[in-house]
Amino acid sequence: MLHLMSILLLLWKLKKSKSCVGISCRMQECYAIVFCLRYLDLFYQFISVYNTAMKVVFISSTFYLIFLMRFQPPVSATYDRTADSFPYEQYLLGPAAVLGFISAEEWSIPEIFWTASIWLESVSILPQLILLQQLREVENLTAEFVATMGAYRFFYILNWIYRYFAEGYVNWIGWLGGIVQTGLYVDFFYYYAMSKWYGQKLVLP
């Protein structure tokens, strides 16, 4: 739900301000790749109506966000491709593919894709964090969006602890990816929490 909320916050922000200054389209592209790799199972496995609906919403809203930022004026006119230039194709996709291949539980296409998607998701926030570090001053809605985008993984960790004790559930790759992902946010969270505590604008060092 937090993940969904962060997407809705971002959509709302783009529609309201008609600007995507401070938003990394490259992060959304990473997520689009994550979702395409992971949700291939839409075609051959049914888990629940909730699960299917969320997958469809995540994929379609993420592609819509990319479309808005890259191609749909007036938002696309504000997209700064020079600032948002983190080369994830080299730095994230390659390593995620290699890790996906060597850490997959079995060497099948769905399993390798699923594993690669977990590793890629764990670092997908990097283009967004690096963009914000260049700009330093973070708009309120952008700060809420990034905070919820990080918080959802932290709540997964709580759920994993619960499921471990309640059902003996084990998910080593998911756990490791989730810890890396949450770890990357800790620094941002700190500055976000401080800005909220003192009621000031979020400014990154």
């Binding site: 199972d41 888990i47 699960n51 998910n171 998911g174």
Partner: peptide, 10 residues
């Protein structure tokens, strides 16, 4: 049966 690890998550 039981879902494989992580496959019932988003």
């Amino acid at each position: 049966g039981k879902t494989a690890q992580g496959k019932d998550e988003l």
